[in-house]
């Protein structure tokens, strides 16, 4: 069963995905100064609207992870990888994405990772191909 949807994005999600195409990452800053990345249109704590978008870094720290030994057909990577929660530099929340780390032993909470950009970017979350260990 297959259905194709066309989703409208709005000013916040749209801006985030537009910036991905330009290899930039945006977060939304709440009234209290918390930076949420990927950004939301509202503060999850108060429900207040948020429209202040700020740029965050394209590298950050792993705050949690799981290891997929056998990727599913639709997973972002065809070989074993980690799902990681990545708190980008300048952000206060974490993004869930794939982390191409080579092996389970190479992943740990607290490690530094950076975005690996997709060669062709279209304004989609998969413009981030995955994260990878930060070049030292």
């Amino acid at each position: 069963m297959e259905l194709l949807y066309r989703r409208s994005l709005g000013p916040v999600v749209g801006a985030f995905l537009t910036a991905l195409r330009e290899q930039r990452l945006l977060g939304s800053r709440t009234a209290e100064g918390r930076v949420i990345c990927p950004p939301l249109e509202y503060d999850p704590d108060s429900g207040d609207a948020v429209d202040d978008l700020v740029e965050v870094g394209s590298a950050g720290v792993v705050t949690g992870w799981s290891w997929v030994a056998e990727p599913r057909a639709k997973h972002p990577l065809p070989h074993p990888f980690a799902w990681a929660l990545v708190q980008l530099d300048g952000a206060d929340t974490s993004m869930v994405h794939a982390l191409d780390a080579g092996s389970l032993d190479a992943v740990r909470t607290g490690m530094r990772v950076q975005v690996r950009w997709a060669p062709e970017r279209t304004g989609h979350i998969t413009d981030i191909a995955c994260f990878e260990p930060e070049a030292s």
Binding site: S66, H75, W83, V96, H97, H124, I125
Partner: peptide
């Protein structure tokens, strides 16, 4: 927008 397109399955998220 952010998570569904990655097909992050429920077992992976639970992990």
């Amino acid at each position: 927008y952010y998570l569904m397109p990655l097909w992050a399955d429920h077992v992976s998220l639970a992990a």
